[in-house]
Each structure stands twice: as C-alpha cells, then as structure tokens.
C-alpha cells in the first residue's frame, strides 16, 4: 500500500513519463469506444424519443416468445440464452487477456478460441431470430404485431428493432473477425516475438464493449 500511495503522489504531468500510464493504442481504443457509445446512445435515445411520442407499443413477451425446436409460448427464453452466451464469451475474453499478461500462449489460444465460438453462437442465434421474425411478417417497414392494448401499431417498432440489433450484430461480427486475427497472431507467435500480448487487451476492450452495448439493447427492446 505504501508504494501505491507514493506512486499516486508522483507528478504524472511533470514530464518524462506517460501521464495516463497506459499504452497509446489502449488509450485510443478507449476513446474510440467512447465515441461508439455515443453512436449507440444516439440510436437508443432516438428509439426512446419515438416510444415516448407513441400512444402504444407491442408487448415484448408476445413478440419474442419462440425458441428453435420448442415452438412458441416461451417468452424471453431465447433472448436469455443469447444474453448468457455473450456474458460467458466476455468471461473467456477476460481469461484470455489475463493469460496474455502471464505470457501463457497455450491459454491465450484456448480462451480466444472459446470467445470466438461464443461470438459465432450469438450471431447464429440472432440470425435465427431475425429469420423467424421475418417469417412472421416483420421487417423494415412491416409490422405484424399489435400494441399491447390491442390498438394498431406503427412500423417504428420493427424499424428500430432491426436497425439497432443489426448495428449491434455488425459490431459482434467485427469483434469475431478481430478475435480471429488475434488468434492467428497468437498461434503464429507474433506476440511472442513482440515480447508482450498487449494487442489481446485492446481486442478484449472492444469485445467487452460489444457485451456492454448488448446489456442496453437487451433492456430497451426485450424488457421494458
């Protein structure tokens, strides 16, 4: 504790050292994620504004009630599975980053592999859900669902749903691609030659951000 007390007293802005004590790439990844948070925030706030200006909205328990192979009548079950897949893949990413700190190549490869599997599983679930909703007649500009009180609903519901979950799915897809590149770089010893696995940390930040955005998207569309 004594040493940390001294280091916080050090003059970080006195010159000769990095004032934020993080690597350039990691800091820039944080600023990118902050700007991305505003993009998603703008989308979700637009959705909220429209919802606040509408007199009714469909009940998510009615819209999202199907599970592949089990039929319908299971409200929110499938999206719960998707949420847990993303949480678990975030955990394996934390373990991959930690293995990178220990410079344990085998563990990095193992955990990155499981993270990629989680990402692909999430994307497959989303593909199934979109396909199912499309079969029910929902798409951009088409809304077969009525409001919770039985009144006619507008296409705002489906437009926002497909746009925002699509934009999030696109982020998951880019995350999977980045993780695959990280896996290849780890397997070909690129990080070993470099002497550090800091790149995994930056990919990890992006992957956790994707999980973080899902927390918000999931709450806004499926719960409230």
């Amino acid at each position: 504790m004594a040493t940390t007390a001294i280091t916080t007293d050090t003059k970080w802005w006195g010159g000769g050292k990095s004032p934020f004590n993080v690597e350039y790439g990691k800091l820039m990844m944080w600023y990118f994620l902050m700007s991305d948070a505003f993009t998603f925030g703008a989308f979700l706030i637009a959705y909220g504004t429209i919802r606040f200006s509408s007199t009714g909205w469909p009940d998510p328990n009615e819209v999202f009630q199907s599970f592949p192979g089990l039929g319908s009548g299971l409200p929110l079950m499938f999206v719960s599975l998707m949420t847990f897949i993303l949480i678990i893949s975030s955990v394996t990413m934390v373990l991959a980053v930690r293995a990178g700190h220990e410079r344990n190549k085998a563990a990095v490869v193992k955990y990155l592999f499981w993270t990629i599997i989680g990402g692909i599983a999430f994307l497959s679930c989303q593909a199934w859900e979109w396909h199912h909703l499309h079969e029910e007649g929902a798409w951009w500009g088409r809304n077969p669902f009525v409001n919770q009180d039985g009144t006619a609903s507008s296409t705002n519901f489906t437009n926002f749903f497909f746009t925002i979950t699509g934009f999030h799915g696109f982020h998951v897809f880019s995350g999977v691609v980045i993780n695959i590149i990280m896996l290849i770089m780890a397997m070909t010893d690129t990080f070993e030659r470099r002497g550090h696995y800091l790149m995994i940390e930056k990919a990890g930040l992006y992957w956790h951000f994707v999980d973080l955005v899902w927390v918000f998207v999931f709450t806004c569309f499926y719960l409230i």
């Binding site: 934020f20 993080v22 902050m34 955990v91 990413m93 956790h208 973080l212 927390v215």
Partner: peptide
C-alpha cells in the same frame, strides 16, 4: 451490470483517475 462490466472486465477501475475522468 454496465458498471461491473466496465469497471472489472474492462479494468477501467484500475486505471489512473485522470484517465478515467477523460472517459
């Protein structure tokens, strides 16, 4: 949930205070 993800999984809680504030 957002706090736990950002603070622990993304380790923002372990960074320097100045850096946290810029985010």
């Amino acid at each position: 949930k957002a706090f736990y993800i950002v603070s622990y999984f993304m380790h923002l809680g372990h960074e320097l205070r100045n850096m946290i504030m810029t985010i």
